[in-house]
Design a protein around this nucleic acid. Structure first.
Length: 491
RNA sequence: CGGGAUGUAGCGUAGCCCGGUUAUCGCGCCUGGUUUGGGACCAGGAGGUCGCAAGUUCGAAUCUUGCCAUCCCGACCA
């Protein structure tokens, strides 16, 4: 009872915060804008990370690690990128503290320990990485260079939200170098595909693949590809980005290679990333008023077994069978917890594991054992069924897969119901107000995009890939347009 | 960074306006017992720098100032 969460309808923001805090994913910290990821939340991240890492390696990438600090002179080398991040950089200016002579027991910055050159705490690592790649790349034989790093980055945000926007967050950033423009473009799209596959197949969140408009493009990129997901309030969340960097960084850091004709050329680059923000997407795409709803493939815990018994003798009987089930499930590679904690009663445990989003709950009682069955409940629909113990393991295995599929289908259906076209300004604003993604014509200018953002509070999320060409008139200006683009209010 | 709100035990809170012995209550926690099929019950118990720091005062949870953190709205944001 002490853990009741705020309803989605009542206060969506508070609902989200309640899920994160009461679902034990994360906690506030003593540092402004920074959060603590708790073991349950971190296990979720580890599961996501492990799968992504596997997919990166399957596509030929290797991991490395680059410094947290970037000398200011390196950081500013690629001007557009530097400008884009300038307003949210944390900067190290000193390297030593000393005792404060005016306050005993307190410390102060030692003014004599000022760094000759300030260090930027990385908001992204292009600068440090490309300054290094310069030394690693001489010949076309050194290409492609396909490196990823798992790291933390810092972006000094004005307003923070757990997982969605924090000053420090965890992510991965891939940085690749290629001999040709075509190959780099191919890589950019390939990694976007990896992200889309991961988010859809493992997180059960459908995404729209697309290209950002110049306004929304990554600073320093020639083209930014993205995947956009719909949250339950109809707002969009950018779930991942993949950038075609052209030769911008190669030129800024003078990274050239000799081609087969022994001529010097600048390399072509990509970078791509997803972050712990994905956890926010996961929460807002699936969860309900009872708590988290986590997809089986990445859930920290897939199955929980709750025993129900009377007396010591009863416990022994149930224990024995439960442990057998645990072993059987583990044998199938399913993560399972037998919660035989005697201090909490079954009803309490049911509510607790629903809050935590455990996909499958098995209630095992003496009455069940007499009939050789167990009660199996699924978190996504809250349906319960009675399953023979002889089939239990197979049924659970099938059920986990079914939950995974159902969650994706449900999210996809929700998106279909909340995506529409608009041809007049009035329709457009109404659709947005109702929490829709809106496909509408846009005249292709930044000015119009800005005005729409100001008046309708909606941004162009992307120009979908393989977007059907269709002539029409801009929703705001009435100017000619050749395709619809995706508008939404966004996180 | 601007506007608004909040901060009292792990959580939620009363008290604050109008300063005055041992700071209220519920949940949770600990001990013992009875229980156990949807957030159990009885009895006993522990737990507090009242966000932090200065100040006013004989005396501060209460008044003043500064700072820190969180939430909401805005601005900002790959």
């Amino acid at each position: 009872m002490g853990k009741a969460i705020t309803g989605r309808e009542e206060d969506y923001s508070q609902w989200y915060n309640d899920l994160v805090i009461k679902g034990s994913l994360a906690d506030y910290s003593a540092v402004r804008g920074c959060m603590v990821i708790k073991p349950y939340g971190f296990t979720l991240w580890e599961n996501m990370r492990n799968q992504l890492d596997k997919m990166f390696k399957e596509t030929g990438h290797v991991n490395a690690y680059f410094p947290l600090f970037i000398p200011k002179s390196l950081f500013e080398a690629e001007e557009k990128n530097a400008e884009g991040f300038a307003k949210e950089c944390a900067i190290v200016t000193h390297y030593r503290l000393k005792s404060d002579p005016s306050k005993s027991g307190k410390l102060m910055v030692d003014p004599e320990a000022k760094l000759e050159e300030e260090l930027i705490v990385r908001p992204t690592s292009e600068a440090i990485i490309w300054s290094t790649y310069k030394n690693w790349i001489q010949s076309y034989r050194d290409l492609p260079l396909l490196i990823n790093q798992w790291a933390n980055v810092v972006r000094w945000e004005m307003r923070t939200r757990l997982f969605l926007r924090t000053a420090e967050f965890l992510w991965q950033e891939g940085h690749t170098a290629h001999a040709t423009r075509e190959e780099a473009l191919e890589e950019t799209e390939k990694m976007l595909g990896v992200y889309a596959d991961f988010v859809e197949q493992y997180m059960a969140v459908p995404v729209i693949k697309g290209i950002k408009t110049p306004n929304e493009r990554f600073a320093g990129a020639d083209e930014t590809y993205c995947i956009e997901a719909m949250m339950q309030d109809g707002k969009a969340l950018q779930a991942g980005t993949s950038h075609f960097l052209g030769q911008n960084f190669a030129k800024a850091f003078d990274v050239q290679f000799s081609n087969k004709e022994n001529k010097l050329e600048y390399v072509w680059a990509t970078s791509w990333g997803v972050s712990t923000r994905l956890i926010g997407a996961l929460i807002m795409a699936h969860s309900d008023d009872q708590g988290l709803v986590l997809p089986p493939r990445i859930a920290p815990l897939q199955v929980v077994i709750v025993p129900i018994y009377k007396g010591e003798e009863g416990k022994k009987i149930v224990d024995e069978k439960a442990r057998w089930i645990v072993n059987e499930l583990k044998g199938k590679g399913i993560s399972v917890k037998y919660d035989d904690d005697d201090t909490a009663r079954p009803g309490w445990k049911f509510a607790e594991y629903e809050l935590k989003g455990v996909p499958v709950r098995i209630a095992l009682g003496q009455r069940d054992l007499e009939q050789n069955v167990a009660e199996v409940a699924r978190r996504d629909t809250k349906e319960k069924q009675t399953v023979s113990l002889d089939n239990l393991v197979n049924e659970v295995e099938k059920l986990l897969e079914d939950i995974q599929q159902n969650m994706f289908n449900r999210a996809l259906l929700f998106r279909k119901e909340h995506i529409c076209q608009a041809d007049t300004w009035e329709e457009f604003v109404q659709a947005l107000d109702k929490g829709n993604f809106v496909m509408a014509h846009w005249d292709g200018t930044s000015e119009t995009e800005e005005k729409i953002k100001e008046t309708a509070k909606a941004t162009i999320r992307c120009i979908p890939l393989n977007n059907p060409q269709e002539s029409g008139k801009c929703i705001l200006t009435g100017n000619l347009s050749k395709e619809r683009v995706l508008f939404a209010r966004a996180y």
